[in-house]
Amino acid sequence: MTEPRLDVQGLALGYEGTVFLAGIDLQLATGEIVAILGPSGSGKSTLLAELAGVLPVPQGRIIVDGRDVTRAPIHERGVGLIFQEPLLFPHLDVAANIAYGLRRHGWSRREADARTQELLDWLGLAGYGFRRTDELSGGQAQRVALARAIAPGPAVLGLDEPFSALDTELRQRLVVEVARMLREAGIAALHVTHDAQEAHAIADRVIELSSLGHAP
């Protein structure tokens, strides 16, 4: 294996000063999708929050593309996040939502627009650019959220049960679609879920969260 996109070394999971899982080691290669399984409340979301820098890291190191980002601010880590809900910015239309990260990464307005159109086509949402976000169905909204997260080209993408709010049929279709998109984009994805079936459908490797580390 060449240099991993994501290299987690001895990471501890904690919230408000209490560590509940320590010593996590995990490597993800380019385009690899790893599913982390665990019941609700086991700390799956904490893992993603620490990777993205939303929560501070109690112990350990997070290395993205060879760069130690353990203490880097959120916007300079190269880690994207998809939440359970799409969380599309309600004051921006669909295209502006997707273009948001591109603009923050220094793309010109024209480049960002062009790239946004590509992504919309790719998602099968061509012509939806000017829609308000509340006109989208649940599945469409989650696909837009995915496009928004992928657009600026993060090295790593954390997916926090992104399909759990959708109905079963839509979910199965979207899981396949998303897996294809992530591999094409070469993004290392960490998918946390409590649903073993979904985990096996999308991931190259499935790991129990509890087996990743040990009690502090």
Binding site: V54, I74, H75, F83, L87, F89, R104, A149, P152, P154
Partner: peptide, 25 residues
């Protein structure tokens, strides 16, 4: 604060996320 987190993971600085996401909301 999730919306701000999303903006931050998309590359917005803390101030930028405040202006782009917090203020409009």
């Amino acid at each position: 604060g999730d919306y701000e987190s999303v903006a931050r993971t998309l590359g917005a600085t803390r101030w930028r996320a405040f202006v782009d996401v917090t203020l409009p909301s």
